[in-house]
Amino acid sequence: MLPCGTYSCNYSEDMAVLRTRSHWVLLIAFLVLLATVPMFAGYQWENFITLVCFFVINAVGLNILLGYTGQVALGQAAFMAVGAYTSGILTAKVGIPFMVALPLAGLLAGAAGIIFGLPSVRVKGFYLALVTLGAQFIIIYIIEHLEITGGTDGMTCDFASIGGLVLDTPTKIYWLVMAVTVILVFLAMNLMRTRVGRAFIAVRDNDIAAEVLGVNIARYKLLAFFIGCFYSGIAGALWAHYTTSLHPSQFPLHNGIMYLGIIVVGGMGTMFGPIAGAIVMRGLDEVVMIAFPKLAEALPSLGANMAPALGPMAFGLVFILFLIFEPRGIAHGWRRLKSSIENWPFAY
């Protein structure tokens, strides 16, 4: 909802993301805030936001695939693994600079996405979900049995370096991950305002109607898989140089489902949704990891197994509550909250 007196007089104005001066001021203030977090917040905040960024990149990618194009995908963690191992191998074993390895990691993950997305031309819904679930097992199996990846022993790589500057401290890593996240979110936001983005939405809403209108369904579905997996590959490459060690167990199915949960909670088909979902789910993770041990200490009879077991239950409960009471996610709730504030004291 635009502020009173702001009208769209032409198409570009209608499509613009930032319409008013206050929008620009808020955006610049927000970016400055993000860039300066390490200067005033502690190590924990820095790391919390870095980890949120990994979630955001993956969730934005999945949102393009599922939220905008309607293609169910459960193998995002495996595509992240493709990106992570590509970047790890290229930098540690081939000697390619990180800045070259990063986009290559995304491209290779995107290519893997196209391979596993091919069945999407024929199948959809639950069947497609099963195909992408297969990607999770096949990719991890391949990684576990290749010598170059170190198999089940894993492999190590160095911290990322850009032009001789080694990004080996949490603050430097934060800036790298944050910058990449902002760029990727910006690109995704713009992508959805292009012809491609509208074609994605058309495929999601009614693929037969889209085809009748001249949208090449197969091409756009595969393109969505490529872009979605490209994002996961980039997240994987950043993760590789964040931990500097790689192991197949870092990319379990659990994570793929978590990314799905993030966009469900955040709100599918919106750009704010994956970001909000990532913050809430990561925050909930932190709360669970901190609060339940404290609960176990307060109530020793719960034991060290009962109290932590409440953690996964809390996640399950959040999913259920959102699916029942706010199936369109936080993004929708936020929009309603905003409009109710703007319209106050009137009901509408």
């Binding site: 980890l51 167990s249 659990h254 993770d285 669970v288 990891m289 953690g311």
Partner: peptide
Amino acid sequence: WADDGYVVDKCVA
């Protein structure tokens, strides 16, 4: 102490 559910990124977190 904290639970990581045997999940690597939780252990890192």
